[in-house]
């Protein structure tokens, strides 16, 4: 299953910590990460601080991944633009997308639509996971490209893959 595969690829690529602001999709990944037991979990209060934290970890020689919902990218733009990108700090930015297929909440749609445009404007490479069979290769490749290019690279989890959130 995609969440388990993601955790497996993170571990295989020596990612040692997960900085996250949870949503229900990221929660599924975290469950596997907790079960695995080899990651330091860092709960964020706001996504932007996660850019600083993974930067500090990288400077110290440790690889961290940053996980957030699409809403959180809006909170992170200046730190990406003025810290991670100019200082050439590589990390995987794993984004759980709201606002596309099956969205029930109108207030997630605008950021959902803007997501790839913002990443493009920042020059951040991004890849979208839509099918189970592309999770492993895309995750593996995105991590490799991030550390080769010394830049953050984003992987977007679409609702085609993870299902959409129903109103409760």
């Amino acid at each position: 299953m995609w969440a388990e595969t993601i955790v497996k690829v993170l571990k295989e690529n020596d990612i040692r910590s997960i900085s996250f602001l949870p949503d229900t999709v990221i929660g599924k990944i975290l469950n596997y990460a907790v079960k695995d037991g080899s990651f330091e979990l860092i709960t964020l209060a706001r996504e932007e601080e996660g850019v600083g934290i993974v930067t500090g970890e990288y400077l110290g020689g440790r690889r961290g991944v940053l996980m957030m919902q699409s809403a959180g990218l809006g909170n992170s733009v200046n730190a990406l633009a003025s810290l991670a990108i100019p200082y050439q700090i590589p990390f995987l930015l794993l984004i759980s997308q709201r606002g596309e297929l099956g969205e029930f909440n109108a207030c997630h749609v605008t950021m959902g639509k803007a997501l790839r445009g913002i990443l493009d404007a920042l020059g951040i490479q991004h890849f979208t996971l839509r099918r189970e069979d592309e999770v492993e290769i895309t995750m593996r490749g995105a991590i490799k490209t991030a550390y080769t290019s010394e830049q953050p690279v984003a992987v977007i989890l679409s609702s085609e893959l993870v299902g959409w959130k129903d109103e409760k």
């Binding site: 600083g52 930067t55 970890e57």
Partner: peptide, 9 residues
């Protein structure tokens, strides 16, 4: 935040 990440690593 950068200092925190470095201290943890």
């Amino acid at each position: 935040s950068t200092g925190l990440g470095l201290a943890l690593a």
